[in-house]
C-alpha cells in the first residue's frame, strides 16, 4: 500500500531495527522508510518503543550501557553508528524529549548555545537566530523582556517550548518531536502545529505523539507502534478512514484501547 520511494527521496531508512534494554525488548524487527520533507507520525500507547526509536536515531545509546541496538538506521544513506563524528550527526538531528529540560543558562544562552558551538560569534547574528527560534516555538512574546533570566526556572510549558526553540537553533534537517505538547495549552499547541507545517519545507519531522488527532492533523504518513512492534505504516488518511491491514490499528485509532 506504500510504494518504495526513490532512494534520493529517503531521509531515514530503518532496516530490521531491534532495541533492547538488558534483557527487555523495547522494539523488535522494525523496517520502514521516512521520506524527505514529510511529517512522519508515530502513534501508540505508552511503552511501545517510540521514544527508544528516537534515542537510537540520535545515538543516545552511547550514554546508556544497558541499551543495545541491532539492525540498521540509515540517515541520508549512512548508517548512524558509522558516523565518525557523532556530534556532527546530533547537530543535524534536533530532538525534543517529553520531559523538557531548560539548561541552567539564561533563556538567550539556551537558544544561542548551539549556534555558538557551531561557530556563530557575532551578537547580531545570534540575536536574529534567538528571536526567530523563540518566535517559531511560540515563546518569544512571553520571554522577550527577560531573556537574561534562567531557562531552568521557567514553567514546565515554557521549558517545553524553550526546548523546541533550542532544537530549531541547531538548524537540523531532521527534527524529532516526542510528545512536545504534553505541558502546553491547546491554543499554543495549535500555534506550534502551524509552525511545524511550515517547517516541513525545510526539514523532515518525526512526530511521536499520544494524541491520535494530533497525528491526523499534522502527519503525512503515520506508523502505529504497539508493545515494541511496528504494527502498521500507512498514509495518515488511510489509517483514519479504516483502510488498515491490521485490526489492532483501527481499534487503537478509534479509541477501543490505549
Amino acid at each position: 500500500m506504500v510504494g518504495t520511494p526513490a532512494a534520493a527521496d529517503v531521509k531515514l531508512d530503518v532496516k530490521n531495527l531491534a532495541i533492547h534494554y538488558g534483557d527487555t525488548c523495547a522494539l523488535r524487527d522494525t523496517s520502514f522508510q521516512i521520506r524527505k520533507n514529510e511529517i512522519f507520525g508515530i502513534i501508540g500507547p505508552a511503552n511501545s518503543g517510540k521514544t527508544s526509536f528516537l534515542r537510537a536515531i540520535n545515538r543516545m545509546d552511547m550514554f546508556d550501557d544497558n541499551m543495545r541496538i541491532d539492525g540498521e538506521i540509515l540517515l541520508d544513506g549512512t548508517e548512524v553508528r558509522n558516523w565518525r563524528n557523532v556530534y556532527a550527526l546530533r547537530r543535524r538531528v534536533g530532538v525534543v524529549f517529553p520531559l523538557p529540560v531548560g539548561l541552567p543558562l539564561s533563556i538567550y544562552d539556551n537558544v544561542a548555545l548551539s549556534p555558538r558551538l557551531a561557530g556563530t560569534r557575532k551578537k547580531a547574528d545570534l540575536d536574529v537566530i534567538v528571536e526567530r527560534c523563540l518566535t517559531r516555538a511560540a515563546l518569544w512574546d512571553e520571554v522577550k523582556d527577560r531573556l537574561n533570566s534562567l531557562g531552568s526556572l521557567l514553567s514546565g510549558g515554557q521549558q517545553q517550548r524553550l526546548t523546541i526553540a533550542r532544537a530549531l537553533s541547531q538548524q537540523p534537517d531532521l527534527l524529532l518531536l516526542d510528545e512536545f505538547s504534553i505541558a502546553v495549552d491547546p491554543v499554543t499547541t495549535m500555534r506550534i502545529e502551524d509552525v511545524l507545517k511550515e517547517l516541513r519545507e525545510e526539514m523532515t519531522i518525526i512526530l511521536v505523539t499520544n494524541l491520535v488527532q494530533q497525528a491526523r492533523r499534522l502527519a503525512d504518513r503515520t506508523a502505529f507502534f504497539l508493545t515494541g512492534e511496528c504494527v502498521e505504516v500507512a498514509e495518515t488518511e488511510d489509517l483514519f478512514t479504516g483502510a488498515v491491514s491490521d485490526q489492532r490499528t483501527s481499534d487503537y485509532v478509534e479509541g477501543r484501547f490505549g
Partner: peptide
C-alpha cells in the same frame, strides 16, 4: 543529556 542531544561534545 539535553546538551549532548544538541550535538555538543
Amino acid at each position: 543529556e539535553a546538551c549532548w542531544s544538541m550535538g555538543a561534545t
